[in-house]
Computed example of a mutant assay.
Amino acid sequence: MITIDRVSKTKGRTRILYDVSFEARPGRVTGFLGPNGAGKTSTLRVLLGLDRADGGTALVCGRRYRDLDRPLTRVGALLDGSGAHRARTARAHLRWMAASNGLPGSRVDEVLEVVGLTADARKRAGRFSLGMSRRLGLATALLGDPEVLILDEPINGLDPSGIRWMRTFLRERAAQGRTVLLSSHLMGELAETADDVVVIDKGRVVVSGSLAEVTGDHRTLEDAFFALTATSAPDGAAW
């Protein structure tokens, strides 16, 4: 369970998040949708303790991320890149991450197989393509077999077969009763994957609900998004 409650943040003199509130529930894929610069990554960084909010709370399983013991066993996260040093091999990176959280070394080969990197385990991260880096980042997120998965633009760099694989994988995780929060600016992909949708624009949550509720009478999620962001703003103003 992920709970974001009235999170606000200012960077310099610019307000980038305005009382952002939503939930991501177990057994469901929650899509966090918005254009580049809308506040998606800033919200996730607050949730993961990488940035400090000016107000509000961001909790995973009822606790702040920094208060979690052995966090990889509770939360798996993929933000920018793989997180691996360019000179390290995929296997060396995963072994180091596993040791940092007291996880068995056997888990490394398991997650390499899950994400399809077994054949590239000895390749240095600096030689990875963007898609391979995303897979290595996902392998890191899966090391502790976490109940919560937080992914920021996970399909960037993936080819069509990789996108289909990612979609199936996320649906399977949710079917196991786990919480999946997926941020993206690709509306078509979210429509194929998400159960629930949170739309954010210019640092404000415009609407949240089930995919059917958010789409409403519109033909597609993309149509609904553009209608919402064009007409919804505080005090009735246009964006």
Rank of each mutant, 00 (worst) to 15 (best):
R6M: 04
L190P: 01
N36Y: 09
A175Q: 07
P104F: 09
M132V: 07
A233G: 15
P154T: 06
R13T: 14
S21A: 10
M187T: 05
G236M: 03
K123G: 05
L17V: 13
L68M: 10
L182D: 07
T229S: 11
V198I: 08
A139G: 12
T10P: 00
R91V: 06
N156Q: 05
D67A: 15
R127A: 13
S100M: 15
R66H: 14
K9W: 02
M166T: 13
E110A: 15
T118P: 03
Q176P: 02
L112I: 02
L181G: 07
A87Q: 10
L33A: 02
R95N: 05
G157C: 09
G81F: 04
A119R: 15
G116N: 06
I4E: 02
A119W: 06
L138R: 10
A233K: 06
S210D: 05
L228K: 00
E172A: 15
T73F: 00
L44P: 01
V29S: 02
L17C: 06
W96P: 00
L72V: 11
T118W: 11
V197W: 07
T3K: 05
D223G: 12
L33Q: 01
V75K: 10
P234M: 12
L17G: 08
T41I: 10
V148R: 09
D120P: 01
G56M: 03
F225P: 02
P71V: 14
D159F: 09
P26V: 13
S21F: 12
A191V: 04
H218E: 01
C61A: 14
T193R: 00
G76D: 03
T168W: 01
T41L: 11
L130A: 15
D196S: 12
G31Q: 12
L186C: 05
A141W: 09
E153C: 08
R127M: 05
A84P: 02
R64P: 06
A98K: 11
F22R: 02
C61D: 09
L59Q: 12
D120F: 13
R127D: 07
R167L: 06
A119S: 14
L117H: 13
R15Y: 09
T231Q: 13
G177M: 04
R45P: 03
L112H: 11
V60C: 08
C61F: 01
R173M: 13
G62H: 07
T14A: 14
I2S: 08
R6H: 13
F32K: 05
